[in-house]
């Protein structure tokens, strides 16, 4: 290569390209990091396992609403079951109606088993896992869903 051949890339273009390249690389990395930050690594929130007391205090055929816990506990001849009272549509708390549950926010309606009978709710109300702790008290785990119709026998 003779000294008269023009270089394929001169110093000015090289420096411009390098500065542009590093600028966008840094911007991209920083943006990725910044958008990753608000996505929480640990989800804060209360433990949603609720002790509801000894089974004897719930008569067969009874239903008991636990508003704070967001669930309704039922007891029939086959055993206990708990239905979540958080609407599967947009998270409002459903209230008991004549034929089941009704949501105040957007008019979703569910039957006594929590199945959708009207309105925009996409899924039935979840049935929650019922169990007992060592001292015999009933415990409902509101974060654990069980198939509809599951009963807990005491």
């Amino acid at each position: 290569m003779s000294r008269l051949d023009p270089p394929r890339i001169n110093r000015r273009s090289f420096l411009s390209l390098a500065s542009m390249g590093s600028f966008f690389a840094a911007l991209g990395t920083a943006a990725a990091g910044m958008f990753r930050l608000p996505n929480p690594a640990v989800l804060p929130g209360p433990v949603r396992r609720f002790k509801l007391g000894p089974p004897e205090q719930f008569a067969a055929g009874s239903e008991t609403a636990f508003a704070e816990q967001g669930l309704v506990l039922f007891r029939d001849d086959e055993g206990f079951y708990a239905i979540s009272s958080t609407c599967t549509h947009l998270g409002c708390t459903v209230a008991r109606s004549q034929d089941g549950f009704a949501c105040p926010c957007h008019g979703s309606r569910f039957d006594n088993e929590g199945s959708v009978i009207g309105g925009p709710a996409p899924r039935p109300l979840p049935w929650l896992e019922v169990s007992r702790v060592a001292n015999g008290d009933l415990v409902v785990n509101a974060d654990s869903e069980v198939p509809e119709g599951t009963r807990y026998r005491v």
């Binding site: 608000p38 996505n39 929480p40 989800l43 804060p44 929130g45």
Partner: peptide
Amino acid sequence: GFQKRLLLGANYVGQD
């Protein structure tokens, strides 16, 4: 779920 966590920082509307 991602959008909701990004907005709330949790699964519930709380301090975060």
